[in-house]
């Protein structure tokens, strides 16, 4: 692959204080409002949050695929192998998209062109990013399809997308995403549109391939179960901000932020006995237009204090890469200063 692989970076991807806003008729939507995280080589990072919390926008921002207007990345830096993606030209960006960072979308039905054969689409993708002949590209595509477990790949590659089932299509998408030996794979709700049994297949596949190819993976999901099984680290997002960041085991064992705690508690679990009511976070996720300067979670928080209603909490490190943004973990002095 490219020569750049020779240089090893500690973090494949560093996102620093990223802000993506949308200018709409109703006001400024701060979809992503100052988030930072790192992604190491071979690591799997989960971004969890409810719909509208800005998790998809985060990843579109990394790919610089924000529709503009109305969207705009208004601040922050995204370093990919030490290079700030936000400062690259469109042509340099094309080299990174697909080649270095690949993406799998939620809906496998709409992300493949229904009028082109799988082979055409795969060969095209490979030829754009790599300097190899069409024949070599075809062979490579077949290899990739075999790798993602499509039976009889040699003949099925000449089929059209509608001849594949949903799960198979998602496999094809993964094969396409990985065909360029991307260093980062971003999976945006890769299994939401799929059935449980197929979901298990796909997740297992992503896990296997990331180990095999040493690819870093970002999984965006709302399903805490998926995160628990797949990810090394987890970021929990709420209203455009990361409220908690920790190692997966740590997060599930000791959730620090009341929102994370609530999320984990409110999922009905097969392995636990039913004991009456489910835990639930009351209220609705906030509309991110014109948010007042407060902790956006305070109307739903059982532990809300006065300071929560006026100030956004600072980020505290609880040790072992466990960071949380909540006033509960600050001392009195900080609260009064805040």
């Amino acid at each position: 692959m490219s020569k750049k692989t020779t240089k090893q970076f500690d973090n494949m991807l560093e996102v620093r204080d990223l802000k993506t806003h949308f200018l709409t008729d109703a006001g400024i939507v701060k979809a992503v409002d100052g988030i930072s995280f790192d992604l190491k080589q071979g690591e799997t990072l989960g971004i969890v949050g409810e719909s509208g919390c800005g998790k998809s926008v985060t990843n579109l921002s990394i790919m610089r695929l924000i529709p503009s207007p109305p969207g705009k990345i208004v601040g922050g830096e995204i370093f990919f192998e030490g290079q700030d993606i936000l400062k690259l030209s469109e042509s340099e960006l094309r080299h990174i998209r697909g080649n270095m960072i690949s993406m799998i979308f939620q809906d496998p039905m709409t992300s493949l062109n229904p009028f082109l054969k799988i082979s055409t689409q795969m060969i095209e993708t490979i030829c754009i990013h790599q300097d190899i002949s069409k024949k070599a590209a075809l062979e490579k595509s077949i290899d990739m399809l075999n790798l993602v477990g499509i039976p009889d790949a040699k003949s099925r590659i000449h089929n059209y997308p509608h001849q594949f089932s949903g799960g198979m299509r998602q496999r094809v998408m993964i094969a396409m995403a990985l065909s360029c030996e991307a260093k980062i794979l971003i999976a945006d709700e890769p299994t939401t549109a799929l059935d449980v049994t197929i979901q298990a297949q796909i997740l297992e596949l992503i896990q296997k391939l990331s180990r095999q190819l040493n690819t870093s993976v970002i999984i965006i999901t709302h399903d805490l179960g998926v995160v628990a099984g797949m990810c090394d680290n987890v970021c929990v997002m709420y209203a455009g901000k990361i409220v908690e960041k920790a190692k997966t085991e740590d997060l599930y064992a000791h959730p620090a932020h009341p929102y994370t705690f609530g999320l984990i508690q409110s999922v009905p679990r097969l392995d636990k006995a039913k004991n009456g009511r489910l835990f639930s976070i009351e209220g609705q996720p906030p509309n991110v237009i014109d948010l007042p300067p407060c902790c956006p979670f305070h109307p739903r928080c059982e532990k809300a204090m006065d300071v929560c209603r006026t100030q956004y909490p600072p980020t505290k490190n609880l040790g072992e890469h466990h960071e949380v943004s909540c006033w509960l973990y600050t001392d009195d002095q900080e609260r009064s200063n805040g």
Binding site: Q284, P286, D290, P292, R300
Partner: peptide, 16 residues
């Protein structure tokens, strides 16, 4: 959900 009974249509941040 709006638990508090208010005549005015406000959200949880007390914005109308």
């Amino acid at each position: 959900m709006k638990r508090e009974q208010k005549a005015k249509a406000t959200n949880e941040f007390n914005q109308v």
